[in-house]
């Protein structure tokens, strides 16, 4: 097998032709419908909580907590991954994706123990979200502090 850069490039072009493309139109439609449904359900929760508590902020927090609870429950029951396969980004872009990313490794790695199993692995996907979310909020905070 010739392995010059030119041969590699040629081979990679050929692989492109032989590899099936994901069906982006169908994928997007499913992401739109499923993601939209999750958000509409969130709106329903938010409206309900608002009418009971009267506080927008509390209603928002309770909505997030409820969605997280349901996601973790369905992850544990072994059905969330099927929703994820169907919905694609429609399942992981809403807060449900964050909850699934924390609960699935926690369940998966329980045999490795409470500390290095559940405790550590819970943050393999969620950890980076928290780290970069916090860092971004600090950047925002710095600008806000000096420019306000």
């Amino acid at each position: 097998m010739e392995s010059s850069e030119k041969a590699k490039k040629q081979y990679q072009d050929m692989v492109e032709i032989y590899s099936p493309k994901s069906k982006i139109a169908t994928d997007c439609l499913r992401a739109f419908l499923c993601g939209g449904a999750v958000c509409a359900f969130g709106q329903f929760l938010s409206n309900t909580y608002l009418s009971y508590t009267g506080s927008k902020e509390t209603a928002g927090a309770l909505t997030a907590v409820t969605l997280i609870f349901l996601t973790v429950l369905f992850t544990g029951l072994g059905v969330f991954d099927k929703f994820g396969k169907l919905a694609g980004a429609g399942s992981f872009v809403p807060i449900t994706g964050f909850a699934n990313a924390m609960s699935s490794p926690a369940i998966e790695f329980k045999r490795e123990g409470l500390v290095m199993g559940i405790g550590a692995k819970m943050f393999t996907v969620a950890g980076p979200v928290i780290v970069y979310g916090c860092l971004a909020s600090m950047v925002v905070g710095l600008f806000y502090y000096f420019l306000k």
């Binding site: 927090a61 997280i68 072994g78 909850a99 926690a106 369940i107 998966e108 329980k110 559940i118 600090m138």
Partner: peptide, 25 residues
């Protein structure tokens, strides 16, 4: 930043831990 994500992350941590004790993959 940390304070404002506390409710969400706290809930996810608690529920995930409980789920790991109840469910198996």
């Amino acid at each position: 930043g940390f304070k404002s994500m506390a409710a969400g992350v706290g809930a996810a941590m608690l529920f995930s831990f409980l789920a790991s004790q109840i469910f198996s993959a």
